[in-house]
Amino acid sequence: MVETVSRIERVERLRVSDSVAAQLTQLITKGVYAVGEKLPPERVLAEEFGVSRSSMREAIRSIEASGLVSSNHGVGVFVVSNTVVSQAASDLLVFEGFTVPELFEVRRMMERDAAGLAARRITPGYASELQDILARCADPNLSNEEFVKLDFKLHHTIAKASQNGLLATIYSSLEPMMVKYSHRVIDLPGRREDSHRGHARIVDAVVAGQVREAQSAAVAHIRDVERDIAKNIAQPTTPTS
């Protein structure tokens, strides 16, 4: 009997507790909870954030590990610092008043359907435009700022290629948020290369008129961003001198 080797890799996802920890970090660094102040009880915080107590507990453990709070069993959790030395998870997980997992949920829904419709309704003009944008993104001399602009243009062009005017208009309204956030994550290790590979898979499927493949490639593209952010958050940080 021939043995098969499993090539399945664990799919890393952002957790609810990561998002809660990021928001708590922002509240502390902005002084909403001052140094020396006692945080509300875990039960109260869980209700305010709309999460389970286990997720709340995990979030508190996370910010305690970062040195912002200290737990005193039987007494409570107190803020002991309002400064983070390295890039905080809040920079990657909370943005413009929304959590990044919320942004990804919206993108998964919109981009999956946009890619599927574009593959079904692709025209030679849009196919040529998408391939041109993809070729420009491959230029190694392209600055990150230019890459981010082309990144949004590619996704917006796919939305337009769906030939659903409302979908394209809604997607266009996300441009300020998506461009600003892309600037935050573009420097993550391998992010630009992963992004370009994801774009290539989406464009290839759309241009070929492969509806299911285009939808799958669009969702996988968003999952890849989540994976890179999750890995970055999981890595221990070294304080700078």
Rank of each mutant, 00 (worst) to 15 (best):
T4I: 15
V5K: 13
I8R: 14
I8G: 12
E12P: 04
L14E: 04
V16L: 06
A21I: 03
A21F: 03
A22Y: 00
L27N: 12
L27D: 11
Y33N: 10
Y33P: 09
A34K: 15
G36T: 01
L39K: 03
P41K: 10
V44Q: 14
A46I: 02
A46G: 02
S52Y: 04
M56F: 06
E58K: 07
E58Y: 05
A59C: 02
A59R: 00
A59H: 00
I63H: 01
G67D: 01
S70Q: 05
H73E: 12
V77R: 00
F78M: 07
A88M: 09
D91H: 10
L92N: 00
F95A: 08
F104E: 01
E105R: 09
E105Y: 09
V106Q: 12
R107I: 06
R108D: 08
M110T: 14
E111N: 07
R112N: 11
D113H: 15
D113G: 15
A114N: 11
A114G: 12
L117K: 08
I122P: 02
T123E: 09
E129R: 11
L130C: 00
L134M: 01
L134H: 00
L142A: 11
E146P: 07
V148N: 13
A159T: 09
S172Q: 09
M177H: 05
K180W: 05
S182R: 11
V185A: 06
I186N: 05
E193T: 11
G198I: 08
I202D: 01
V203P: 00
R212D: 13
S216G: 13
A217P: 01
V219C: 10
I222S: 03
E226C: 04
A230I: 08
T237P: 09
S241K: 10
